[in-house]
Computed example of a mutant assay.
Amino acid sequence: MGKKKANIASDEESGEMDMSPMIDMVFLLLIFFVVNATAITVKKDKNIQMPTATSSGEVKSANGCIVVNVYGEGEGKRPDGMSNDVRWASDVSAPLNSPEELKEYIKNLAERFKDKQDFETRLYLRGDQKALFKGSREVIRVAAECGVTKVVFAVLPAKNSAPASRED
């Protein structure tokens, strides 16, 4: 009789599984999710010298934040090139020259965020230390007219506190 081939692995073959394709697939999935994740951040204007607070809370999410920067008045030409009569700017430092422009900016973002049910629309107010409160009060009044009633005052933490802003 001839030799029969047995279904037994030869001594040269090992019973280990090659993990290289599995590791490659895990890294590809990781890269896919990192690239597709949307990080929502609040853009900050470095020209604003924010006030400090000893008691503050941290904003958990930037979802639904309408950012308005309030600048100090009467300081001549600012480093960003805007004149001192411009009191507000959007989150990307686009000047808002009048209460009408401010209202249009807040109204457009509030309407866009209204369709989103998973977060609440908030006014994120970033005021300069030298800014008068009347600029902030005008922003809060306009936001209330547009239906935005929650206000977050952005502050820097005092030396012994950790959070970066307070929600009121």
Rank of each mutant, 00 (worst) to 15 (best):
G2C: 07
G2I: 11
K5L: 12
I8H: 05
I8G: 03
I8C: 06
A9H: 09
S10N: 14
S10P: 09
D11G: 08
E12T: 10
E13S: 10
E13L: 10
E13W: 03
E13T: 12
G15N: 11
M17Y: 10
M17D: 07
D18L: 05
I23P: 09
D24M: 14
D24W: 05
M25F: 15
V26K: 09
F27Q: 12
L28V: 08
L29F: 15
F32H: 11
V34P: 02
V34Y: 11
V34N: 05
V34I: 14
V35P: 06
A39G: 06
I40N: 10
T41K: 10
V42N: 14
V42R: 05
N47H: 02
N47R: 00
N47G: 01
Q49V: 10
Q49C: 01
P51F: 13
T52D: 11
A53E: 11
A53M: 13
S55R: 15
S56E: 12
G57M: 09
E58I: 08
V59R: 12
S61Q: 04
S61L: 02
S61G: 06
V68K: 01
N69G: 10
Y71N: 07
Y71T: 07
G72E: 14
G74H: 04
G74T: 08
D80H: 02
D80E: 12
M82T: 12
M82R: 04
M82W: 01
N84F: 01
D85R: 09
V86Q: 00
V86L: 02
V86H: 00
V86C: 00
W88V: 00
A89I: 01
A89L: 01
A89K: 00
S90T: 14
S90A: 14
A94C: 03
A94R: 01
P95Q: 03
P95N: 07
L96Q: 02
N97E: 14
N97L: 10
S98L: 08
S98M: 07
P99C: 10
E101R: 00
E101P: 05
K103F: 01
K103H: 08
E104N: 06
E104G: 00
Y105R: 09
I106Q: 06
I106G: 10
N108F: 06
L109Q: 13
A110F: 12
R112H: 11
R112N: 14
K116F: 15
Q117I: 02
D118G: 04
E120G: 03
E120W: 02
R122V: 10
Y124D: 01
L125P: 03
R126K: 15
R126H: 04
D128E: 07
Q129N: 12
A131E: 09
L132V: 05
F133C: 03
G135W: 01
S136I: 01
S136L: 00
R137S: 06
R137F: 03
A144E: 11
E145V: 07
E145H: 07
C146H: 08
C146D: 12
T149H: 14
T149I: 05
V151N: 11
V152A: 09
A154C: 13
A154E: 15
A154N: 15
V155G: 03
L156K: 15
L156A: 09
K159W: 09
K159Y: 11
S161H: 13
S161F: 13
P163K: 10
S165H: 13
R166A: 05
R166W: 09
D168Q: 14
